[in-house]
Every structure is written in C-alpha cells, then in structure tokens.
C-alpha cells in the first residue's frame, strides 16, 4: 500500500527541499498542498516553515491550515514540524513583537540574547547557523538508528528554551540550552532542518515515514 505524505504549502519558503529529501528517504507519494481534503487524506503530514513567524502564521490561518492540522492531529495522523513549523506549534513566540501561535504545545519561543556569549565569554553569533549536536534527552522512535549527539543543521535566531516545555526530546547547546526537538503523541517537531542534515536528517525522515504516531 502506498503511503502518502502531505507537505503543507502555505506559500512560505522552499518546499522542494523537503519534498526531495522525503523522496530520498523513501517516500513514493509526496503532495505539496494546502488543500484540506488532500492533507486529511494523507497518511502523514509535514509542516515546514522558514522566515518570519507572524507572516507564516497569518498565511497558515488564512488558508485554513490551522483547522486542518488540528483535525489531523486529533485523528492521530503522524505530524512532523520543521523550524518555524515547530515554533508555530508552541503557545507563543516573542518574534515580531509577540505572536500567539497554534498552541499544540505549552511554551514561548524567544530570541537568543543580544551580545550572546558562551561560558568562556566568547561571542556567539546570531543566527545560530550551522551544524550542532543534538542530545537525545528522551527516547523516541524518530531517533532510531541515529547516534546520540549527532550533528544536525540549524539556522534560526529564535528558539524554544529547554526549560519552557516538558515535551523536549532533543537538546542543543548554544551558550544556552535550547529545544532541538519536541514530541507529544503523534506530533514530532524539530528546530533543525532534517532535509538539510545529510545522512542523519534523511534517517530521521525515514523513521518518520514508518512511524505509527505512537511513542
């Protein structure tokens, strides 16, 4: 039986990368769409996102994708959020002067501190851009076959502090502990970009394609 994956297309950012990485990871049927029927008919859903969160959420809501996603999550469809997709699942973000998000998870997304530095006083650049290690602080089927502290590609200026949520399943350290991944029920979301994280990212996507949504 062919499994279908819907990548939610709300007009923000480059969805081809997500689509081609899913295909490389083994997905045979990938639809990039905002159509509620197509999304609800899919066996699994990817919620990507890049750019400013206020614009992302405005478009997402305008297209009615928030209602569609809520319904799909209630039905138990496995969902993978990526980057701003993950941040949008939280209760709130401080970006763009403060934005109410979708509220699938408690917690507020914040900016890295201005004049950010590590414990030795060395300046840390923002965006947090590049390959950082992810410590798997909770077991999850999506970590199967991926080494603890494996490298993933991050690119973001806003983040979910680890202390903000009980659902953190992966941590990164950038002078401050941040949430690299969060999970609850049939929803898994990453701050990093699995579609840009080479073998580790492709493995995570392959795990998502076989995940039954139970953890």
């Amino acid at each position: 039986m062919t499994q279908t994956v819907a990548v939610i297309d709300y007009g923000m950012g480059n969805l081809h990368s997500v689509e081609s990485a899913l295909r490389e990871a083994g997905a045979s049927d990938v639809a990039v769409t905002a159509d509620a029927e197509a999304i609800l008919a899919a066996d699994r859903i990817v919620f990507p996102g890049v750019g400013a969160i206020r614009d992302c959420l405005a478009e997402f809501r305008r297209l009615g994708c928030d209602k569609t996603l809520r319904l799909a999550v209630e039905r138990g469809t496995p969902v993978l959020g990526i980057c701003v997709g993950m941040q949008s699942l939280m209760a709130r973000s401080e970006e763009n002067g403060g934005v109410d998000c979708l509220g699938f998870f408690d917690g507020t997304v914040m900016r890295f501190p201005w004049n950010h530095s590590d414990t030795d006083g060395r300046k840390l650049k923002v965006p947090h851009m590049g390959w950082n290690q992810v410590s798997q602080n909770q077991n999850h089927p999506l970590w199967d076959g991926i080494a603890d502290n494996a490298y993933f590609y991050f690119i973001h200026s806003f983040f979910l502090p680890a202390a903000e949520s009980d659902c953190v399943t992966g941590l990164f350290d950038y002078g401050i502990k941040g949430s690299a991944a969060i999970a609850k029920g049939n929803v898994f979301a990453t701050q990093f970009h699995p579609e840009k994280s080479h073998d580790n990212g492709l493995k995570l996507l392959a795990n998502f394609l076989t995940w039954d949504g139970i953890c």
């Binding site: 590590d118 390959w131 950082n132 290690q133 502290n149 490298y151 991050f154 990164f172 350290d173 950038y174």
Partner: peptide
C-alpha cells in the same frame, strides 16, 4: 557540545 565550524 558546540556549533561546528563549517567548510564550504
């Protein structure tokens, strides 16, 4: 754990 330097 730290952010890796990049080779491009």
């Amino acid at each position: 754990m730290s952010l890796a330097k990049r080779i491009i």
